[in-house]
Design a protein around this nucleic acid. Sequence first.
DNA 1: TTAAAAATACCGGGAACCCGGTATGGTCAA
DNA 2: TTGACCATACCGGGTTCCCGGTATTTTTAA
Lengths: 215, 215
Amino acid sequence: MTEQKKHNIWVVEDDHTFKSSLEDLIEMEDQFELVYSVNSIEKAFEGFATKRAPDVILEDIELPGMSGIEAISYYKKQYPRAAIIMLTIFDDDDRVFEAIKAGADGYLLKRSSGEEIIKAIKDVLNGGAPISPAIAKKMMRMLTGASSDKKESPLTKREQTILKLLVDGYTIDMISGELHISPFTVDTHTKNIYRKLHVHNRSSVVAKAIRDGLV
Amino acid sequence: MTEQKKHNIWVVEDDHTFKSSLEDLIEMEDQFELVYSVNSIEKAFEGFATKRAPDVILEDIELPGMSGIEAISYYKKQYPRAAIIMLTIFDDDDRVFEAIKAGADGYLLKRSSGEEIIKAIKDVLNGGAPISPAIAKKMMRMLTGASSDKKESPLTKREQTILKLLVDGYTIDMISGELHISPFTVDTHTKNIYRKLHVHNRSSVVAKAIRDGLV
DNA sequence: TTAAAAATACCGGGAACCCGGTATGGTCAA
DNA sequence: TTGACCATACCGGGTTCCCGGTATTTTTAA
């Protein structure tokens, strides 16, 4: 078979900039064809009726509305043979585990280079599972038991310090005074903590921190 | 016995002004000896190894770091025969009640006169317990109210329901929708929960609920 | 020696919280 | 039948949070 059919690709990503990069990247490859590119899961589902079936779906894991992980089962139901690659900014154990359990075939960090992303798509089409080295390492640890000997936190030192204080009920201003830094800085750290832990308010960050042993 | 040994006093108080007054007051009494005076619980614990055992410990109920109430059990373990008197600015029944349950022998309002303070110390050395009528009433109810012991939650059913939702990161409005009651009602319940658990914000209520197994 | 990550700092606006009140109907035990 | 407790509901005002930005310096890693 010297001549082979192009592989159909779907993209579901709400960040406009990254979405454009992906589109360009895919269109530059002869063997790929971008048949559908949308910015929400709801729109992706609309494609079930109108678009050519995908061989590969690239989907942001952190979409507004329905969680990207939740959507996986719907894709699988509609296109059992499609490979699903999740895209994410941060690599954390919870998400990886959930996504893989839900049926994702691969997992990519958004900061990967274009070459790495293309390679990942080709890998998954050949039955491989594109997992970033960092993620692979974490998965190994998960599978080889001992699961939580060290529980690597995705948070930086400073963020961990601030998280402890948040859990102890400190306000931004109190933390500012305690650490001798501007309240604006504390706010910034707090926002980053929220993003990394996938929460959107104090209560949830405290609950997650305690339950996951982050404090 | 006309001649008797002096009573050893420890002071744990972080307000410098009040701490000085206390020190002066105690040193003026012949039968008292101030053997250790510090401004934090951590420092107080250091005295376990180096200072003469106290007959009376005067401790601020509202210290930063470990709660003064929490510290009581440590003092009792170290010095079972020492009398512990809690110092408080406000006549906070709940706090004082908690302190007494934890093993405190009495409490004093900081605005008390020097004479009253000295009298309270002497009272407690003679087995008396300076308690306000309001506190006495609560204690009576608790004793006659049976059970209470164990880890019975002080929260009502409705409060427990709401607490669970708070821990899960729900806002007042979300809870209102979930339970089909007015947000004002949810607010009222929340305030009551705060009061009962002695916390003053979401973070603390979540942390306490999880750590105390209330959810 | 560079590029990336981390830590720092600032702003504005809308949302949510926190508190101290007041008030009313229902239930249940003394 | 009379307190008490509970669940419900409402208000105003000050505080704090949450988010989406932008931007500089310091530290770390390739």
